[in-house]
């Protein structure tokens, strides 16, 4: 069976691109909702920013795993 299409170069970069889709959407939602929440309740800015950063850090974890896997799996 012959290949119809092939990818050359470092597959790790493609893996990272795929791994970054979900966290990208997630981080967008977190900051979008965070800004909206601050606009609605400016007096709670500090609390919202705190939770926004915490949620951002947790969402980012998946992208980070995708970033490291190519180095581990060489």
């Amino acid at each position: 069976m012959s290949a119809i299409a092939a990818v050359s170069g470092n597959l790790g970069s493609i893996a990272y691109g795929l791994a970054a889709i979900g966290p990208g959407i997630g981080v967008g939602i977190i900051f979008g909702q965070g800004v909206q929440a601050i606009a609605r309740q400016p007096e709670l800015t500090n609390v919202i920013r705190q939770n926004m950063l915490l949620g951002f850090a947790l969402t980012e974890a998946l992208a980070l795993i995708g970033f490291v896997v190519p180095f581990v799996h060489q």
């Binding site: 947790l58 974890a61 980070l64 795993i65 970033f67 490291v68």
Partner: peptide, 12 residues
């Protein structure tokens, strides 16, 4: 995963 992401976030 906690210690892993904690370290890797900064590193990455």
């Amino acid at each position: 995963l906690r210690p892993f992401t904690h370290a890797v976030r900064l590193f990455a």
